[in-house]
Amino acid sequence: MSEELRIRDGRSLSLAQALEERLAEWSERTGIAVEIWARPGQDAPPKIAKAVLAVLEEALANIERHSRARVVSVAVTIGRGGLRMTVSDNGVGFLGVAQGRGVTAMQSRFAELGGSLSVSGVPGEGTTVTGVVPRRR
């Protein structure tokens, strides 16, 4: 499988292709618009790619359940320092500390890779999930 990610129907896709496909399917199903601000220009190792897609799925599920958003913006980049992922929505946001099984699961996925993930909200303006996985030396 090398630097590609295998998905459900058996096709091998890069992380950028898998992100685009999943975001398009989700947007069509939910009616929530998706803006892709940045795609990774290079592929991530399969373990990291799978974690990114799992976190994306959880973030989108939370948006669908709780946010009442009309637009979701996604950026995933890979550079010298590692991978950075941002998922933002223009929904209801929240005040305080993000909690719950979904937040814990997303944080655990990135922590297993030596990374970190935060969730912040602004009441009436939306929520942003930001995760970073540093490049291994």
Rank of each mutant, 00 (worst) to 15 (best):
residue 26 W to R: 04
residue 124 G to N: 07
residue 74 V to N: 06
residue 121 G to D: 02
residue 78 I to T: 05
residue 104 T to R: 15
residue 86 T to A: 13
residue 61 A to N: 15
residue 112 E to Q: 13
residue 55 V to I: 06
residue 65 R to T: 13
residue 112 E to V: 07
residue 33 A to S: 12
residue 100 G to E: 10
residue 118 S to H: 06
residue 16 A to S: 11
residue 15 L to G: 07
residue 131 G to S: 02
residue 12 S to M: 14
residue 115 G to S: 08
residue 125 E to Q: 14
residue 60 L to F: 13
residue 18 A to P: 01
residue 80 R to C: 14
residue 90 N to I: 13
residue 63 I to K: 00
residue 53 L to Q: 07
residue 61 A to C: 13
residue 9 D to Y: 10
residue 117 L to P: 01
residue 17 Q to V: 11
residue 11 R to V: 10
residue 69 A to T: 08
residue 102 G to C: 03
residue 99 Q to A: 14
residue 36 I to Y: 00
residue 94 F to E: 05
residue 43 D to T: 14
residue 20 E to V: 04
residue 51 A to V: 11
residue 124 G to D: 04
residue 35 E to F: 11
residue 6 R to S: 12
residue 135 R to Y: 04
residue 31 G to A: 12
residue 134 P to F: 10
residue 15 L to M: 13
residue 41 G to K: 10
residue 87 V to Q: 04
residue 106 M to T: 02
residue 16 A to E: 02
residue 20 E to H: 01
residue 60 L to M: 15
residue 81 G to E: 13
residue 103 V to Q: 08
residue 111 A to S: 10
residue 115 G to T: 05
residue 95 L to D: 15
residue 68 R to Y: 11
residue 94 F to T: 04
residue 72 V to P: 00
residue 6 R to E: 14
residue 22 R to H: 12
residue 127 T to Y: 11
residue 19 L to F: 01
residue 86 T to E: 15
residue 66 H to P: 04
residue 117 L to D: 00
residue 86 T to P: 06
residue 115 G to F: 07
residue 92 V to T: 09
residue 125 E to M: 11
residue 129 V to P: 00
residue 71 V to E: 06
residue 29 R to G: 09
residue 82 G to E: 01
residue 123 P to W: 07
residue 27 S to T: 08
residue 69 A to R: 02
residue 122 V to Q: 12
residue 117 L to Y: 04
residue 43 D to L: 11
residue 117 L to M: 10
residue 46 P to Q: 12
residue 105 A to M: 06
residue 33 A to M: 09
residue 137 R to H: 14
residue 119 V to H: 05
residue 131 G to R: 01
residue 12 S to T: 14
residue 29 R to F: 05
residue 89 D to I: 09
